[in-house]
């Protein structure tokens, strides 16, 4: 393989408990910690391991978002990516438009493989990889937990509801990373310094000139219904009695 393209989305950090704004206009992200979407970090780790095994030559990280996403791309470069591309957009980009933008980059870069996270933990859409594969007319292997390459093909083990499914796909293809594909490495300080010198190309989203379709309108945000704290019991007989009361045992 020559090139692997990896998507890195800037999202609210995994540990932040997001709250809906009191006026229902969105979620409060002011001043909260932002990070690389955890599944994208796994995607990048996998790409780096493939390159380190000598099975690929170059790993390119891509983010679509505001100029602040440069931070996440720099982290990606510090992890070991060779170069970065930021598709700069001041407004939120939906999955279909993201997929169309990735496709434009694919046409330019001709990667052998695209690895994305299986979902972004902000909107939980789980769409972009599959949409990209569809528009590209290439295979998709979603929810991947193991990849084995054999020339121009890959065997991918997928985490599905009833267990593990293995499929074989021809390259180029889109793979989306699940949790257990690998454990991403920690970034070391010297690598952060080195990453500052690596190339980071900025493209404006408008320059990619993708055709957007009627977007979904996000009309209201509300907090979820909270469950109430229930009763505490002190031993097993009390627990069994409480369950019997509810007709559950």
């Amino acid at each position: 393989m020559e090139k692997i393209l990896v998507g890195l989305k800037r999202v609210v950090d995994y540990n932040v408990r997001v709250r809906v704004k009191s006026d229902g206009s969105g979620v409060d992200t002011d001043g909260v910690k932002m990070s690389i979407n955890p599944f994208d970090e796994i995607a990048l780790e996998e790409a780096l391991r493939i390159r380190e095994r000598g099975e690929a030559k170059e790993v390119i990280v891509v983010s679509i978002g505001t100029s602040e996403a440069q931070q996440q791309l720099r982290t990606g470069l510090a992890m070991g990516a060779d170069r970065a591309i930021l598709v700069e957009s001041t407004t939120a980009v939906d999955p279909l438009t993201s997929a169309k933008m990735f496709l434009k980059l694919i046409e330019k870069e001709n990667p052998d493989l695209v690895i994305l996270g299986k979902q972004a933990i902000d909107n939980d859409n789980i769409q972009t990889g599959q949409m990209l594969a569809a528009l590209w007319g290439r295979p998709q292997a979603t929810f991947a937990s193991e990849l084995v390459f054999d020339g121009n093909r890959a065997k991918v083990t997928r985490e599905v509801d009833i267990g593990l499914e293995t499929i074989e796909i021809d390259l180029p293809a889109v793979i989306t990373a699940d949790l257990r594909l690998n454990e991403p490495r920690y970034v070391k300080l010297p690598d952060i310094m080195k990453a500052k010198k690596k190339p980071l190309e900025q493209i404006s989203a408008a320059d990619l000139a993708v055709a957007t379709v009627n977007a979904l309108v996000e009309s209201a945000y509300e907090p979820p219904q909270q469950r109430q704290k229930g009763i505490m019991v002190s031993d097993v007989p009390e627990l069994v009695a409480a369950l019997k009361d509810k007709g559950l045992v």
Binding site: D94, P95, L96, A99, D124, N125, I126, Q127, T128, G129, Q130, M131, L132, A133, A134, L135, Q140, T142, F143, R158, E159, V160, D161, V213, N214, A215, L216
Partner: peptide, 23 residues
């Protein structure tokens, strides 16, 4: 919204050139 549908439906939506509503 099982692994079957999560895998399949966005591929359908993209071929129809529409956004998908998940979950």
């Amino acid at each position: 919204s099982t692994t079957f549908g999560k895998d399949l439906m966005p591929r359908v939506a993209a071929l129809l050139d529409v956004n998908q509503i998940s979950d």
